[in-house]
Amino acid sequence: MLTAILVMAGLAIALGAVLGFAALRYKVEGDPMVEKIDAVLPQTQCGQCGFPGCKPYATAIAKGDADINLCPPGGDEGVKKLAELLGVEVKPLNAEPKPKSVAFIDENTCIGCTLCIQACPVDAILGAAKQMHTIIASECTGCELCIPPCPVDCISMVPIREDLTNWKWRYPVFRIKPA
């Protein structure tokens, strides 16, 4: 009887020690779910979801505080990917998806106030006080966060035009010709 208790107690202590060691040794920094969700989000950092960036939105989704259909830049495709990742039903996007655009500064109107530079979440605007500002188009995510702070309304969004570098083969469809 006593041996049995001792054996069981010994086993419990030994296994507990192993588990405790494993918990410390293989500790995962941060929430892996947040990272996974963040990887799916388009990283425009636009805040259209109501959160101040993609990572906070990912955190909110992981906690269950936010719906998966709040990201207009991700589009329906993004909602689908999130639904797949989280194992939930696909929902229609709660906003109209917009064509992918980049910001453009009208240099004739720009007064060099630097307000847009401070607003840009990815530091894609180049300029200094009382100097001309310009968008680094290749880094612009099209979040539109630079538009409201501009005091002279010199920033506009220019949709990215289709050219040979970003053209895609269309989904094959059979064209029906009128007889």
């Binding site: 989000l41 388009p42 960036g53 894609a124 970003n166 895609k168 083969w169």
Partner: peptide
């Protein structure tokens, strides 16, 4: 169609990774 979609996605993934890093 599938190939160019995959290429486009890879490109998008790359640019979103850069955007994340920059942010």
């Amino acid at each position: 169609f599938a190939k160019s979609e995959i290429w486009a996605r890879e490109k998008e993934k790359r640019s979103s990774d850069i955007a994340r890093e920059r942010h």
